[in-house]
Design a protein around this nucleic acid. Structure first.
Lengths: 151, 151
DNA sequence: ATAAATCCCAGTAAAATACTCGGATTTGAA
DNA sequence: TTCAAATCCGAGTATTTTACTGGGATTTAT
């Protein structure tokens, strides 16, 4: 029941992208450097995000990535689903298989998995990338005076 | 972002136990047979559930397991946490590490992980084992007429 | 005494994760 | 036109986690 590095890194990368790609495209190299993520690994994550239609790429020198739509229209759920595949905690076989009745006990747990899945979905779809960008700006301002005293 | 077989099997096992242990202790063998779970694997799961104080064991011939407290006082969250360890989707390093400011970007994602964690926790703690037992009885009654026509 | 059970610990095959690496292609700029 | 910076693409691989299996010790009702 853990989110993998794909989701964790990927979300950080997209926040970074949202912040820095307003003026021009942002390269994988610069995101990787700022976020301290392996460049070639991040490359793979960006490929998935592109495939999911969340970012667009500009090839060649000076190229990079930009958001495909405004940060307010991209939810954390969109991002995590693109990277982690299905976010469902349990992919219920009861729904797919046609043996219905014999495993009545199994079926009861279906109710549980549905509840969990719904609550996760709701939580992540509720949070928009733009919120996180805003939140980040605030945090940075508060943390600023810390730069001398904070190890 | 998946629940492992530990959680899935374990919940089924405890529902089974709740149903059958009213009169006497229930052996791992019988649960495993009914639920079609490997006996020795289930043994390990029961050990965890015992350690977590959710079930009690009776050793020796005729022994087995029973719930440590009424099914109404055991939540799905209790069970899953006992088996899966921490249910948190992300164990946030930002909370533990004392390097605070430098990674302001990272910190923003903390907000997301907290939201996800909270919603999962709430969902699973809300559902009690007793509800699932009740639900199971209903399902069985409805499904009964199916026994002749249903493959 | 025996058989049925929990208990306990160690090993292991398969799958998933978290990467790395090499090279092809595109493109802006010198 | 050449170069370098970038995306694109596919394959390989070490580590970790999962999902078990197996063997033997201990407890206890009959």
């Amino acid at each position: 029941m853990k989110l993998s590095t794909k989701g964790r890194y990927g979300l950080r990368a997209l926040i970074d992208l949202a912040v820095y790609s307003e003026e021009s495209a942002v390269s994988i190299g610069s995101i990787a450097a700022r976020q301290k993520i392996s460049e070639s690994y991040l490359e793979q994550l960006m490929a998935k995000l592109k495939k999911a239609g969340l970012v667009v790429s500009i090839r060649g020198a000076g190229g990079g990535y930009r958001l495909a739509r405004p940060a307010g229209e991209i939810s954390v759920g969109d991002i995590l689903r693109a990277l982690e595949g299905n976010l469902e905690a349990v992919a219920c076989d009861g729904l797919k298989s046609d043996r219905g009745c014999e495993d009545a006990d199994v079926c009861v747990t279906k109710y549980v998995w549905q509840k969990i899945n719904e609550s996760i979905t709701q939580a992540v779809d509720d949070i928009k990338l733009s919120q996180l960008v805003e939140e980040g700006k605030k945090v940075k301002n508060i943390e600023q005076p810390c730069q001398n005293g904070c190890k």
